[in-house]
Each structure stands twice: as structure tokens, then as C-alpha cells.
Amino acid sequence: MRLSIASSTLAALLLLSGCQSLGLGRAEVSVPATATLGDVVTLANSSGASTLVWQRDSEQYALQSLGLGGPLRVSVSRLDDVTHALLLWGGLVVIPGDGQDRIVAAEDASPVEARQVDRALLLAEALPPATFVMTTCPLPGEVGSSKDLRRLAEQWGVHLSGVDNLVLAGPADRVTKVLRAFSAI
């Protein structure tokens, strides 16, 4: 039995390193130094890493320059996450859809469009950072004041609504920060 676990693990690692040495899962794309947010989104879509579309009225953000000092090489497996990080930096969020995700200015995003997610998923950082999500907090039976939650939400620009059952809505990265700070109180 022990031998079987060891050999299976070894086989898995060999397979993984084999794939990597062959370049599988390590394909890279290059983002030019002069790239705009729109260029990155186009690159992410064309390489199959993302399925993003600009919401009308948010298209102006596509022209925003990244101000990169030099070209940026990104593996395709990381491209969706990196695109999200850049969008969030640019003041945008991504509203998940069925097969097509919409890029919207954070200030224009309506909380009702956020994707309901489990808190554990956020704390595990399992979602790309600009994903527009909502989650309830505090959970039933959990201690914590709504006033405190409101203060933390304000700090990170997260939308908070509700009276008894409070709902946090915002980009996954920021909602996670609010949840972490709230749990430390």
C-alpha cells in the first residue's frame, strides 16, 4: 500500500515535470510596455485565458495605459488572474456571466449583479481578484457588530447592505480583506 502511494506520487510528479519541460501549461504571452488595459483584455481573450467583454460606458477604461516600464511575460495559466489584477488596479470589476464576463467600472457596478459566493471560497483566494461577488456577513450565530462591518467595508470601498442579514458586495480581493479584518475583531 505504502509503495503504491509512493509510486503514484512519483508518477504524478514525473508527469507534472514532464508536462512543464514540454512547455505544456507554461505557454507564455508577452504584454508590450506600451500596452493599455484594453490590449491586455484582448490578449487574455485571444489566448483563451479569459472570456471578457467591455460593458458599454466602461470602454473608455480600455484606453488606460498601464505605464509598464518594459514588456511583461505572463504564462497563459496566470493570464486571467493577472488581467483581473490589472482591471482592479484600473478601478474596474468583472461581473461573472454565463460564458461571458463583463468588465464594469467599480463605481457603476450594481450589487444585485454580484455573484453569490461562499465565504470559504473567498478566504481561500480561489477567485480572480476583480470578480464582483457578494457574501453574507456575519453568518447566523456569529458575533459581530454591523457598525464595525460598515467601517471596514468603507475602508476598502465594499458595498454593504441589509439590516440584520448584511450583504457585502465588491471585488473578491477587497471583500476578502473586509472578512479577514472582521474576523480578527
Binding site: L72, R73, V74, S75, R78, D81, V82, A85, L86, L88, W89, Q155, W156, G157, R174, K177, R180, A181, A184
Partner: peptide, 30 residues
């Protein structure tokens, strides 16, 4: 901004309009 490769960071001047929203970039540290 990211901890995986590629590592990205941003620099923001406090003399720009971003000053009023800079707190939202704060990193939570336990």
C-alpha cells in the same frame, strides 16, 4: 498587486487625485 509570477506592483503619488482613495489599497495584515 500579485504574489505569483509575474509579480506586479503599483506606485501611486500622493499628490494626485488618488490620494483620497488610497486607503482602499491598504493590505490587511493579521
Amino acid at each position: 498587486l500579485t504574489h505569483g509570477e509575474p509579480r506586479l506592483f503599483t506606485v501611486t503619488s500622493l499628490n494626485t487625485g488618488a490620494r483620497s482613495t488610497i486607503k482602499s489599497l491598504a493590505m490587511y495584515l493579521p
